Simulated scan of single mutants.
Amino acid sequence: MSEMNEQTAFNAEDLNFNDLQLEDFDTDLAASAPAMASMPERDLSFFRKIPVTVTLEVSSTEISLGELMKAGEGTVIELDKLNGEPLDVKVNGSLMGHAEVVVVNEKYGLRLIDVVDSPINSLEH
């Protein structure tokens, strides 16, 4: 029974990395790359129906909780952006680009000025 309780110690000399053919591993990966490239593209049109929230963020600022607690009706809190600067357009909280405010049919709208690089842009039309 005492033989079963003995633990086998790990011996680093038992490892022989020379038997591994690592250079063949790299060529196997390179050989499979063209096969992956020739795979047909998936139809991603179903993504177009997923609803997202588009937000036009005017600006923000950091103030202390004490200052916020003193704020009341008529209090002005100065924001970080200057008048006339493009506003941030966010999609589900992630920056999509910058825009300016416009009025369309008596409703506010936005005119995109620039679109930042994002995964959304890579989806085909």
Score class of each variant (00 low, 15 high):
115 V>L: 15
39 M>L: 14
113 I>L: 15
8 T>Y: 07
24 D>R: 12
21 Q>D: 15
90 K>V: 05
111 R>K: 15
63 I>M: 09
95 L>V: 10
45 S>Y: 00
50 I>D: 01
5 N>V: 11
121 N>C: 08
33 A>K: 10
103 V>N: 12
92 N>S: 10
16 N>T: 08
87 L>K: 13
8 T>G: 03
111 R>A: 15
44 L>N: 06
18 N>G: 15
42 R>S: 10
104 V>N: 08
37 A>K: 12
26 D>K: 09
87 L>F: 11
53 T>I: 09
112 L>W: 03
115 V>T: 15
30 A>V: 09
70 K>E: 10
1 M>E: 06
78 E>D: 06
114 D>W: 04
109 G>W: 04
64 S>F: 03
65 L>K: 11
19 D>M: 06
5 N>E: 12
44 L>K: 04
122 S>T: 03
27 T>M: 09
60 S>R: 15
77 I>N: 01
115 V>H: 01
50 I>P: 02
27 T>A: 07
109 G>D: 02
69 M>S: 07
74 G>H: 01
53 T>H: 02
100 E>Q: 10
108 Y>K: 12
70 K>V: 04
37 A>G: 00
118 S>E: 02
7 Q>Y: 12
14 D>Q: 13
2 S>H: 07
7 Q>D: 12
33 A>E: 12
78 E>W: 00
124 E>A: 09
8 T>Q: 13
105 N>P: 01
55 T>S: 13
111 R>F: 09
14 D>R: 11
93 G>F: 08
94 S>P: 00
21 Q>W: 03
3 E>A: 12
92 N>L: 05
21 Q>I: 05
110 L>F: 15
104 V>F: 03
111 R>E: 14
33 A>M: 12
76 V>M: 10
26 D>R: 10
90 K>I: 02
50 I>H: 02
20 L>Y: 12
69 M>P: 00
115 V>S: 09
80 D>K: 13
16 N>R: 13
2 S>M: 08
22 L>C: 00
41 E>V: 02
29 L>K: 09
110 L>K: 03
30 A>N: 07
23 E>F: 04
63 I>C: 03
74 G>T: 00
32 S>N: 11
60 S>P: 00
120 I>M: 11
25 F>M: 13
108 Y>I: 14
27 T>L: 07
26 D>I: 09
34 P>F: 05
28 D>S: 13
100 E>F: 08
44 L>G: 00
73 E>L: 09
62 E>K: 11
51 P>S: 04
26 D>M: 08
85 E>T: 10
5 N>A: 14
87 L>G: 02
54 V>L: 15
19 D>W: 03
17 F>Q: 02
36 M>A: 13
63 I>V: 11
13 E>I: 07
107 K>I: 01
38 S>T: 06
116 V>M: 08
66 G>K: 13
95 L>N: 05
70 K>A: 11
91 V>E: 01
113 I>A: 09
32 S>L: 13
86 P>W: 00
59 S>M: 07
46 F>P: 00
118 S>V: 02
82 L>T: 05
27 T>I: 12
